[in-house]
């Protein structure tokens, strides 16, 4: 069981940078479109705020994981 969770965790940390890249591109796209048309509220809406929250958590997770890995080395 422990091994299974370890595999899932490994897979998660392999995928995490790609998820973060995609989330960052997603946020950048919204920022640019919002610059051209603020009235559509691409940034100032609950969906984007939720996505931003998730993005922050994922970034924090990856950063902490990297720091730990780096210290192990």
């Amino acid at each position: 069981m422990k091994r299974f969770f370890k595999r899932v965790a490994d897979l998660f940390f392999v995928l995490l940078p790609h998820i973060n890249i995609s989330m960052a591109l997603f946020m950048l796209t919204l920022l640019v479109t919002d610059f051209f048309n603020r009235a559509m509220a691409f940034i100032n809406n609950n969906i984007t705020k939720g996505m931003l929250f998730v993005f922050c958590i994922l970034i924090l997770t990856e950063a902490i994981h990297d720091v730990i890995q780096h210290r192990k080395k």
Partner: peptide, 17 residues
């Protein structure tokens, strides 16, 4: 795959927004 995932995110966002 990263670009594809970004596209999926944007499409999902557009649908709900």
């Amino acid at each position: 795959s990263d670009i594809l995932l970004t596209g999926v995110l944007l499409c999902t966002f557009s649908y709900f927004h």
